[in-house]
Amino acid sequence: MTQGFYTGRWSYWALVLPILALIAMFFYIPAALAFFWSLFLERPFGGGSEFVGFQNYERVLSDPEFWNAMWRTLTFMAIAPTLAIGLSLILAIAADRGIRISQAARNIIIWPKAVAGASIGVVFVFIFNPFLGIFAPLNEIYPGIWNPRIDGADAFATLVVAQVWNGIPFNFIILLSGLQAIPDTLTKAAAMDGSGPWRRIVDLQLPLLTPQLFLTFVLEFVGTVVEAFGLIDTMTQGGPGGATNLLIYKIYVDGFKAYDLSGAATQTALLMMFVIAMVILQFRLERFVKYER
């Protein structure tokens, strides 16, 4: 896997040790500790922890709230990345036309990447305010038609919009650079064969874009599981009535507000297994991705 040239053993370990120490200390040990705690009933202040085997798992897995939160997480994962990638794809194909507005659009569409989820939340919570925000006029005509503070579906929608706003730039850039990497000769050849610009999008560009699409889906899926936290904490705090209580937020509340260390660790362990399974699944699907051009 390498063009290995040097052989010095001391210098080799000196070079890799910093990163190994860092990930051991702040990644592998915490991950292992979460699995460890999930087997105990841990008193918050220590001084007594009881080994309970898989009792915590039984408890969490039989708790309907865990499944509700999981289900909301899955719903969010199904909607937000699809929109974020789908819209980015449309925008990227449009920007790839090289018309006058393309350059300006490229410059502007990347901005949200630099805005933190929590900052977006602060702005969007105002924009979607039922009495002050952009839908306030609608509420004047049809009272109560839009209120994310009461209606769980409305609240969920605000989260999705904010997440999509935040997710577009990165996907857009990746997809656009993928499109631009398609050799002109291919496009010209297709044009000579008489396929028009619309046809070429479907027959030529999309198939050649599968590696980039795959990459964006992998990153978006893993990302949405956790990135929504900043939005939830600033926009809905999991409400109304738990309608936006995704698993990552539930874990935070259970662990940091309710001192349920064992429960939080168990849910963390389960979510970790879920994310790992998903990543593995995605890489199994990678076989269908065309890398050769």
Partner: peptide
Amino acid sequence: LPLELLVIT
């Protein structure tokens, strides 16, 4: 596994 998942431990 993003850091957010491992925050507790």
